[in-house]
Nucleic acid binder design. Structure first.
Lengths: 336, 336
DNA sequence: ATGAAAGCGCTAACAC
DNA sequence: GTGTTAGCGCTTTCAT
């Protein structure tokens, strides 16, 4: 840097000013000379040194429970990355494999590295607990929430999602909708069931009469549940399947295909998550409710850069948008 | 740090020595006193300052083309992350969205940040070109190769994978295998076809007689191709489908189910990639060839830390292991 | 066996 | 308008 200064006939200070574009009143002429010297020498500022001096590393720590189980985590990373990049920042990522020990160590490590902020993201929505020393740095939670709600977090609005999914079917004219749920205990499952009931009630259908079957988010549970429901006949037979996620919907598709039941002519199907590549590619393309992973990552990073995480509400919900494709149609003529 | 020294009655130098475990001949007694002071004060070294001083940031840059399209990229990140973490290092990631401009900027940024090394990974195997200034830092390529082979890279052994996939079917007794390939131009597709032919030849089957149909890696191409092949009858009808990837296999599953053709009793199916959650969950669980994404990330990071990338061969291939599940059986009795 | 001193590459008062 | 100076928090020769 002082070398650049020497070449331009100025001091390192001046070089610093023009590098950082600070209009400390440097003559355009000097600015040009410095710029030239920079180009000729191919000078690039050392970000490590800048970080040490300014106490801002332009780095944000991204702690996640299981990277490997992307897509979700990947989308969240992408959302956060994009806003970070726009702020000349980058993501330093740690994969805790759900080990609290690694989580602790990761937080400490990130603090030692003087990251400007930390994001904690998990793949399946759940409550987490954080080491106390994370308070040394701004922190926001993605797809999870802290024990005492003492960190701002962003979550998918699953209740609204469950309602929207049901509404799609209701709008198409269905009255007997079977909900093949995900894992019963899961936060997402409970919220979606709640939304489902709200939609039913609003449509004048007693939620008590709803057909609910518990699955586990895996394709084979969708397959098994669909087969079971297909044995029902007459007015108790559902005209539509609402699935706990797209994998379960795929399982249902297979059961339906095997049974020679056509989608959506005879039975409509709606998935959830919209996280698998398959959804739009499969025949018929699967209508689904998209989990806003990218948006959550984006939102969280945006808040961090806005530097206003203090006045954030404990929880922020992001809408789960319906992605309408071809797996929903009117109920078959003659169905109850 | 000098504060710790003051408390322990020594200099900052000594503190540094014990922090870094350097056996510069510090009395155990002094060591203990320093350690105590560190604990009492909760002292933690500033990694940024260390980085500036030592010129090693314990950070490795991970440049990828599309994070969002995980799983693959996610697994690679996980593999690299795990070895980095074991070396007290972390990954700084950049998502280029396949833009050469961002790629350039990313490399420069990482160099400015003084990362110890850079890994470049892509999701679909292909040739890439790198800005020249990346040579300032050790670099290895994952799932891609440079124009002039001037960077060591690691690739999946797709030829062997294609051979293995075919061999599974051959071993089960199949003689008429249809290969529903992925995108024709893709590096992976070409290599897999080559391996497929090798296996056929070795089994005494003229590869010229093989049924090859070009798909595009998407589920609907698997669906369409399977339907088309199902119209074949007599001795020209295949007894097994080898698919370009698992998504295509899922499409084929659906076509098969619709046609009332049972897997594996009437037709065996093998997928490729083993990257979708569905493969093991679906009925029958899909036999597939696993792409070694985790292993490639792991291997690349290991080489970087070994610091011996100079003497690496231009290309290293990692085995694609077969994952045997339930979608392969003997050919149906009476089939040609 | 320990400490003094120099400096990694940069920024930011403050002075001129 | 631009330069001087004093660090940011650490490591590492070289003396003692």
């Amino acid at each position: 840097m002082s070398e650049v200064g020497r070449r331009a006939g100025v001091s390192a200070t001046t070089v610093s000013f023009v590098v950082n574009g600070q209009d400390k009143g440097i003559t355009p002429a000097t600015q040009q000379r410095v710029q030239d010297a920079i180009n000729e020498l191919g000078f690039r500022p050392n970000r490590t040194a800048q970080g040490l001096r300014t106490r801002r590393t332009q780095t944000i720590g991204f702690v996640t429970d299981e990277i490997a189980v992307m897509p979700p985590a990947g989308q969240t990373v992408a959302g956060a990355h994009d806003v970070a990049w726009a702020h000349r920042s980058l993501l330093l990522i740690v994969n805790t494999t759900r080990s609290p020990r690694i989580m602790r160590a990761a937080i400490d490590d990130l603090i030692d590295r003087r990251v400007d902020a930390i994001m904690v993201a998990v793949v399946g929505t759940r409550r987490i607990s954080l080491p106390t020393d994370i308070r040394q740095v701004p922190c926001v939670l993605v797809n999870c929430y802290a024990a005492g709600n003492d960190f701002p977090c962003v979550l998918p609005d699953e209740t609204e999602g469950g309602r929207a999914a049901t509404q799609i079917l209701l709008d198409a004219g269905h009255r007997r909708i079977a909900f093949l749920t995900g894992l019963p205990g899961a936060w997402a499952t409970r919220a979606r069931i709640k939304g489902h009931r709200m939609a039913l009630t609003a449509a004048g259908i007693p939620p008590g009469s709803a057909v609910l079957r518990a699955g586990n988010f895996k394709a084979d549970s969708g397959y098994a549940l669909a087969r079971e429901l297909l044995t029902l006949s007459g007015p108790s037979r559902p005209t539509a399947f609402l699935c706990g996620n797209d994998r379960m919907a795929m399982g249902a598709y297979l059961a339906l295909a095997e049974a020679g039941v056509r989608v959506p002519e005879e039975i409509s199907v709606v998935g959830y998550d919209d996280q698998i590549d398959l959804a739009p590619e499969i025949h018929p393309a699967l209508t689904s409710i998209r989990l806003p992973f990218y948006e959550m990552g984006h939102w969280a990073a945006t808040q961090l850069f806005a530097g206003a995480i203090q006045q954030l509400p404990p929880r922020t919900y992001i809408q789960c948008r319906a992605v309408l494709r071809d797996s929903v149609g009117p109920p078959a003529a003659g169905a109850s």
